[in-house]
Design a protein around this nucleic acid. Structure first.
Length: 720
RNA sequence: GGGCGAUUAGCUCAGUUGGUAGAGCAACCCCUUUACACGGGGAAGGUCACAGGUUCGAGUCCUGUAUCGCCCACCA
């Protein structure tokens, strides 16, 4: 018997060695599996693309969970004989990455992006991204992820850039991408627009001021942002509001805090007569709602009073002031003029930028948009409908199912998607201008063309991920074999950001679905249920965890009992429990190999032993069904339970007397049974705990392939 | 304001199409029995949030209530 079994299981010595051996074998690559004869040439394909981690730093426990779940399905399908491909990659994550690097430069050198210039900043970001990439790749390997590294992709590399330009041009030509002057979410801190989904609302205490524009203005108005009132062009009241009926349609001039304004009173049913005074001051340039109301009543959008650095642009005492200071100035002025009627405490949801924390300043700007409610040429449907349909029809299945409702709800409320960003890191908008001329897609030849300064929202390129990773727009063999992909596994928090956009982009560009099943995992929280975050310092680093307990233990702890779509709590204690299990398995192997290694593994079984084997068959079928039906959280628990409480506690224990007894037939039977059960257990457990099972398998007399990784799944039925 | 989810043993959670409640951890008792103390054996612990209903039978299905959590919208 191997000497290695004489010591307790040492994960740290084993795992890195095993991964290197797997990698060296080339068997993560399905082409190599076919070449080496472990997969049939006509085997059906099974493909998953890795949700590309952002190159902003390192992986967290959520990533570890994602890797565990995906690797389970991949390893299972590989053992079932599928032509199995799992494509790795990373995401340039435009805003997120640029803002991390900008912060660092600001801190270290006191410089901002304009001090460095576009070229230098990009160079710095690329260096950072490269380092971050290398860290991430080593973390992916540490977790045991059986990714085909020969196909690694990056959302900003040349192949993916070509896919981006191609889709952009197709959408532009189809009339679905347009350039429009509209209210955008401007982030003054990040100096860019962001999409609606990148906003987080924070509740803050605020004051609600009730005032009049001038002494002879007939209607009092309530606002939380008095400084914007110098940009007002109207006052809206509800059409049925008897108090103000007589003023509707009238126009007034005033000088408000040194700024001449012109106000028209309009009636609009959006206005809630019960809130404040029942009258809303309209600032179309600095509020989405006001812009929409102004639209309906032909009021000007042109009065802009705040600029991109959140300072006042008007003349007079407010000139050049920050909005927060301007607010105080206006309130003082209102008081001194006797125009302030009331000041109340209230609560306000302040829109902030997810990445930078900057307070969003709605501004009208010229931006690129994807129109979601316009018919897609040749399809007879809008992009919205194309996003809804495959989920409605069941072509795409979302697990857990209740997220389908959330998905529908989100899409029904979807507005046009702003895809341009005023940052430098990312895919430059593939549009060139020369006077009145415009070129889209590829750079035009000839002099005098200048490219659009903006870059694309990072989700534009991630939206293409399932097919851009397979070499599209070229008609590659990979694309033909592996698309649509089978499974997309990710956190429910990016259902809208990413899943929805992949469906949109794939339906548009290919007229098909990107994946058949969406498996959504929940958040990994700390032991007391808090979100893990840097600022709380309660992060569990997957590298620390694997070093301490082993990747196998970490994977089990993340998977067992963790139902899809539900947040889980993670503690070192739970992981420790599965480290103990790894050691238990190790000792089971020691006992079995010690007592049965050189015996006949196919010796005839006694009736009792045959029954034990048959119970194992039943369990195998049960676990297989669980995996097929995406209940990996149960499958993992069942194989754990089987190994410990059936195989070890019952079969092994009762074997002791049989093995030391005098009945040679019973002994031979029992030895064969032990070897067989251990062999079955290793195979069933391999997708969950790949390292230790592989290590034990290498010492098994039943070993029938170079690696357990490509050994056969232990059930009788053929490929479905 | 709209939507979704949760409520099961001290804690964390499972419970697949309805068939007399399960695991891990913690706590209690015993055991250093040569696979394993990263272990073994044993005992204890729950009117499955509450109220109705359907059913021969409900943790599971339906209706309502309460509490907690999340998502979306964003009222000036």
């Amino acid at each position: 018997m191997d000497e290695k079994f004489l010591k307790p299981y040492d994960s740290s010595a084993t795992e890195s060695r095993i991964y290197a051996e797997w990698e060296k074998s080339g068997l993560f690559n399905p082409d190599e599996c076919i070449r080496q004869g472990v997969t049939g040439t006509d085997a059906p394909a099974y493909s998953v693309v890795l949700p590309p981690p952002n190159v902003t730093g390192r992986l967290h426990m959520g990533h570890a969970l994602m890797l565990a779940v995906e690797d389970i399905f991949i390893r299972y399908k590989r053992m079932r004989g599928f032509r199995t491909l799992w494509v790795p990659g990373t995401d340039h994550a435009a805003i997120a990455t640029q803002s991390v690097v900008e912060k660092q430069i600001k801190k270290d050198e006191g410089l901002n992006r304009h001090d460095l210039g576009r070229e230098e900043l990009l160079k710095r970001i690329e260096t950072f991204a490269m380092e971050s990439h290398d860290t991430i790749v080593s973390q992916l390997k540490t977790m045991g992820a059986s990714l085909d590294w020969s196909r690694e992709a990056f959302t900003l590399d040349e192949t993916r850039s070509r896919a981006v330009r191609t889709v952009f041009k197709q959408m532009y030509d189809a009339g679905l991408i347009y350039r429009g002057h509209r209210i955008v979410n401007w982030d003054p801190r990040g100096q860019t627009t962001i999409s609606d989904d990148e906003i987080v609302y924070e509740e803050r205490a605020a004051k609600l001021y009730t005032f009049r524009y001038s002494k002879d203005f007939p209607i009092p108005v309530a606002t939380t942002r008095p400084e914007t009132k110098v940009g007002d062009v109207g006052v809206a009241v509800h059409p049925d509001d008897a108090r103000y009926k007589e003023f509707v349609g009238k126009e007034y001039d005033a000088v408000f805090c040194d700024v001449p304004i012109h106000i028209k009173v309009v009636a609009d049913k959006e206005v809630d007569p019960a809130f404040g005074t029942g009258a809303v001051g309209l600032t179309p340039a600095h509020s989405q709602t006001d812009w929409d109301i102004a639209d309906r009543h032909m009021l000007s959008h042109e009065v802009i009073v705040i600029n991109e650095i959140a300072k006042m642009t008007v003349e007079g005492r407010l000139h050049g002031k920050k909005t927060t200071e301007a607010r105080e100035t206006v309130v003082e002025w209102l008081k001194s003029e006797g125009l302030l009627e009331k000041e109340e405490d209230t609560k306000q949801n302040v829109a902030t930028a997810e990445r930078t924390g900057g307070i969003i300043e709605p501004l009208p700007k010229l931006q690129w948009w994807i129109e979601v409610e316009k018919e897609v040429p040749g399809r007879g449907k809008t992009l919205k409908e194309l996003m809804l349909e495959p989920v409605r029809s069941g072509q795409i299945k979302i697990i857990p199912e209740h997220f389908e409702k959330t998905y529908f709800h989100w899409i029904e409320n979807l507005r046009d998607w702003c895809i341009s960003r005023q940052i430098w890191y990312g895919h430059r908008i593939p549009v060139w201008y020369k006077g009145e001329e415009i070129a889209v897609g590829e750079a035009p030849t000839g002099a005098g063309w200048t490219q659009d300064e903006d870059t694309l929202d990072t989700w534009f390129s991630s939206g293409l991920w399932t097919f851009s990773t397979l070499g599209w727009p070229d008609e590659t063999a990979d694309f033909k074999t592996y698309h649509p992909t089978d499974l997309l596994e990710t956190g429910y928090d990016i259902l809208f950001f990413w899943i929805a956009r992949m469906i949109l982009m794939t339906e548009f560009a290919l007229g098909t679905i990107p994946f058949k099943t969406v498996y959504l995992h929940g958040l990994v929280r700390d032991a007391s249920g808090r979100k893990m975050s840097k600022s709380l310092g309660n992060n569990l680093d997957p590298l620390d965890i694997t070093a301490k307990f082993g990747a196998d233990a970490a994977r089990m702890a993340l998977v067992v009992g963790n139902t899809p779509g539900t947040d889980m709590r993670m503690s070192e204690d739970k992981i420790k429990g599965y480290k103990h299990f790894a050691n238990k398995l190790w000792n089971i192997a020691r006992f079995v190999l010690d007592n049965a290694k050189d015996t006949d593994p196919v010796a005839p079984l006694t009736t009792g032993d045959a029954e034990i084997l048959s119970a194992c068959d039943t369990m195998s079928a049960d676990i297989t069904r669980d995996i097929e039906e995406f209940r990996v959280y149960m499958a993992a628990d069942k194989i754990y339970h089987y190994a410990w409480h059936e195989l070890a506690d019952k079969v092994l224990e009762e074997s002791k007397s049989i093995l030391s007894g005098s009945d040679a037939v019973a002994k031979a039977s029992r030895q064969a049974l032990l070897i067989t059960l251990l062999d079955r257990t290793l195979r069933l457990l391999h997708p969950f705990m790949p390292f230790i099972t592989e290590e034990i398998y290498q010492s098994m007399p039943t070993k029938d392939s170079k690696f357990l990784m490509v050994a056969k799944w232990p059930i009788k039925s053929a490929l479905e």
